[in-house]
């Protein structure tokens, strides 16, 4: 196995969503916290694509922001290439930051409309002092051609491009600091399918060419399956399952993963039998006790309502579900499933 590039351990992030102090005093309310991520641990190996999937509010983007250093974790550590990310030290963070970049969801919002494309792409080069003078312009031209645009596009403004082309510009900007690791937060969800295919293919080609490592965040299971080697499934801020991409879709271990898979509309019209999906993701300010999925789980047991399940090793990876640790329950469940 190749080496670990990024490892995350016990990552937790809470947001203070309390009312202002005076209201709290008058209404005798406690402080309120929203736990966006609780105890998330995973590893990403060099050259692989690791994907995080989950519904809205499951904490996908919060993890991405912590990994690129835009948000400080409340607890837990992030190790990049063996080095612990130290949010207190500006210099250390700066040195690390060159090595990872991010591509955002909305290419209409992530590019400054008043800057020319060439300046947008050159900014990381200037910031990290990688090149100077005419070499910068040459590099920008090279990057633009790399992502399928032309070098002369550097003089244009973002509004002159379509959504797919803008996402290409965002990718060129991400590549300009020669990173090893790119966090892609829903890179194609604002795009049409035919354009999405172009961008996904481009991301693949670049990965092969530069040996990039991706953290792909998406709510679209088909995109995730197409792109990634391993997948982590998030539910209400916790990882419920991590598995090898191909096997996750064949033998999902966690009931939530199974439900998600069943919810994906079926293009093959195979008429496969599916368990109807029930309920919605609960409010993360007051998550259910025990396993957060228990109110929607078809196999719920008493223990699920009380104890948060720990990660157990499965054939295809890891999953956090009491069913996996309780053999007798598993046997009774089998005929149903």
């Amino acid at each position: 196995m190749s080496d670990v590039l990024l490892s995350v351990e016990g990552l937790t992030r809470r947001f203070d969503v309390s009312k202002p102090w005076l209201n709290r005093v008058i209404e005798r309310e406690e402080r309120q916290f929203l736990t966006a991520n609780a105890d998330v641990s995973f590893e990403i190996r060099k050259g692989e694509t690791f994907a995080l999937v989950g519904e809205s509010g499951s904490g996908k983007s919060t993890i991405a922001k912590m990994i690129v250093g835009l948000l400080e974790p409340s607890a837990g550590t992030i190790r990049f290439d063996g080095q612990v990310m130290d949010f207190a030290s500006g210099a250390a963070m700066r040195a690390l930051r060159r090595r990872f970049q991010m591509i955002f969801q909305d290419p209409f919002a992530s590019l400054n409309p008043r800057w020319r494309v060439g300046d947008i792409i050159a900014e990381p080069i200037h910031t990290f002092g990688l090149l100077t003078g005419a070499a910068v312009r040459q590099e920008v031209g090279r990057l633009l051609e790399l992502v399928g645009l032309s070098a002369s596009d550097a003089a244009k403004f973002p509004h002159e491009f379509s959504g797919g082309q803008r996402q290409r510009i965002a990718i060129a900007r991400a590549l300009s600091s020669r990173p090893e690791f790119i966090v892609c937060d829903e890179p194609t969800s604002a795009l049409d399918v035919s354009v999405q295919a172009q961008i996904l293919n481009l991301m693949r080609d670049l990965q092969d060419e530069f040996g990039l490592t991706y953290l792909l965040i998406s709510h679209d299971l088909s995109v995730v399956r197409h792109m990634s080697n391993r997948i982590g499934v998030l539910y209400l801020g916790r990882l419920v399952e991590i598995a090898d991409a191909k096997r996750l879709f064949v033998e999902p271990q966690h009931p939530y993963t199974r439900m998600l898979l069943d919810a994906v509309p079926d293009l093959a019209l195979s008429g496969r039998r599916r368990t109807p999906v029930t309920g919605e993701i609960p409010n993360p300010i007051n998550p259910p006790p025990g396993c957060a999925f228990h109110p929607r789980c078809p196999h719920v047991m008493d223990i699920c309502r009380q104890i948060v399940p720990a990660q157990t090793t499965t054939a295809s990876g890891q999953a956090a579900c009491h069913l996996l640790t309780q053999d007798d329950h598993r046997r009774t469940r089998e005929p149903v499933a």
Binding site: G164, S194, L200, N201, L261
Partner: peptide
């Protein structure tokens, strides 16, 4: 044909998606 080929599915095995050039 191009549109259908560009959609990733849960069962496909192809490594690359078909892409329609241009927009």
């Amino acid at each position: 044909v191009g549109l259908m080929g560009s959609i990733p599915t849960l069962t496909q095995t192809a490594d690359r998606l078909t892409q329609i050039p241009g927009s």
